[in-house]
């Protein structure tokens, strides 16, 4: 499965938002369920799925602006 689809799957599973999340979905400020608790859950799920570790200091609003920015973050971690 392409990386982007895997991340969307994690987001949909974690947030259980009213709206379905797609590649075009903006995350921060548009999904009420997107708060610090959701962020920690998503980071933990990404760590488990891809085997990298994310430091607290790497958790930044810019990473979670859109699905695209989150995909770019995961790509950097996997590089």
């Amino acid at each position: 499965m392409p990386l982007q689809n895997q991340i969307i799957e994690i987001l949909n599973g974690t947030l259980q938002a009213k709206q379905e999340i797609s590649a075009e979905t903006a995350l921060l400020g548009t999904i009420p369920e997107f708060d610090s608790m959701a962020v920690i859950t998503i980071i933990t799920a990404l760590e488990d799925r891809f085997g990298f570790t994310v430091d607290d200091d790497e958790i930044d609003a810019s990473v979670f602006e859109t699905v695209g920015s989150l995909v770019a973050f995961v790509e950097r971690k996997l590089a």
Partner: peptide, 13 residues
């Protein structure tokens, strides 16, 4: 209350 720059961080939890 959580300072704006820490709103996505683990501070609240």
């Amino acid at each position: 209350y959580v300072e704006p720059k820490f709103r996505l961080s683990p501070v609240f939890l």
